[in-house]
């Protein structure tokens, strides 16, 4: 059988990313048609295997699959893992044995999708693994930003927030860098991934703990990351108030940003903590692309499903 997966943005090169985004553009038009249906994946079965709740990602993949005429089945495997004695391998093998063409996997553990791809024949799409990656989120962010700004080569994008525990940041870093953008990661040191300095040196991105300095240097987009509730009392930073003042996209920061660059884009992968990492003013500003991101999600996932599944040829796909 074939082995073709999207586990990490590392699996795709710049040309493939551009192809996915171009196809997503065509898919986006379908969203505005009366008949939102393409026959490309007729007869294919896509299973959303979610070990962790995520209504928005799951429904986005579900709609994407259905609009491409695939049969889409949702399986919530929450709590069916280690605690109940069934191994990840058992769960994956059981679902794969039903004869599915693709498994879309969300898991709270980093690397889960990688591991599953070693065990089964179906295509595996990583819909978020622990604090590792979320490749389709990065693709839809890039798509959204590209629609707003045109080609991203040379653009400066700041990603701000809980970098350690964010799967979005790792995928976005890889994706935006491959598209030629300049990326600066901003967070208090306690929320930065370990070894970030050598990582940054190797990949050519910047790291800072001073948001105002980064914004003053000029940015084309700011991507605000969610701060998880459980981090707030975890000793990562003293209080939510101190975090907001240091790293939130507050009204004064928004005003300064827009004054310096009216074309600036504001992104957030959601769900937002209004008032913590992003003020309501910023979330709803004319420069906010938050809803565009959601709308792009379906088109981008259609594109990914299409490129992975439309052909029966074994040599396509991204990670072998």
């Amino acid at each position: 059988m074939t082995r073709r997966h999207l586990l990490s943005i590392d699996d795709v090169d710049e040309g493939q990313i551009r192809e996915i985004l171009a196809t997503a553009g065509e898919m986006h038009d379908v969203q505005h048609r009366e008949v939102k249906k393409l026959p490309a994946l007729r007869g294919r079965t896509v299973v959303n295997l979610f070990f962790e709740d995520s209504t928005r990602t799951r429904s986005s993949f579900e709609i994407a699959g259905k609009w491409l005429s695939a049969d889409v089945i949702n399986i919530s495997a929450k709590g069916s893992s280690a605690s109940k004695g069934e191994s990840l391998r058992d769960t994956a093998m059981t679902v794969a044995a039903m004869g599915v063409d693709a498994l879309v996997i969300r898991h709270s553990a980093s690397g889960a999708a990688h591991q599953v791809s070693q065990w089964i024949d179906a295509a595996v799409i990583n819909a978020g693994d622990g604090t590792h990656e979320h490749p389709t989120q990065a693709l839809l962010d890039a798509y959204t930003l590209q629609r707003h700004h045109g080609d991203l080569a040379g653009r400066h994008i700041a990603i701000v927030g809980d970098l350690t525990h964010s799967r979005v940041v790792r995928s976005n870093l890889l994706c935006l860098t491959k598209l030629g953008a300049r990326v600066t990661l901003v967070a208090p040191v306690t929320l930065m991934p370990s070894g970030i300095a050598s990582w940054a040196a190797a990949e050519g991105f910047s790291v800072s703990s001073d948001l105002d300095e980064v914004l003053a240097g000029g940015v084309d987009a700011v991507m605000m990351l969610r701060v998880q509730k459980e981090r707030m009392s975890g000793g990562y930073f003293p209080t939510p108030r101190e975090y907001t003042i240091g790293y939130g996209l507050t009204r004064p920061r928004l005003d300064a940003l827009v004054a310096a660059n009216p074309e600036v884009a504001i992104c957030h992968p959601g769900p937002m903590n209004r008032g913590l990492e992003i003020s309501a003013d910023a979330a709803d500003a004319a420069q906010s692309l938050v809803l565009d991101q959601v709308s792009a999600g379906v088109a981008v996932r259609m594109s990914v499903l299409y490129h992975l599944l439309a052909s029966g040829e074994p040599d396509r796909g991204y990670a072998a």
Partner: peptide, 12 residues
């Protein structure tokens, strides 16, 4: 579609 390598769709 299935017998060919995946082709990127062209604009409609």
């Amino acid at each position: 579609l299935r017998r060919q390598p995946t082709r990127a769709p062209l604009p409609t």
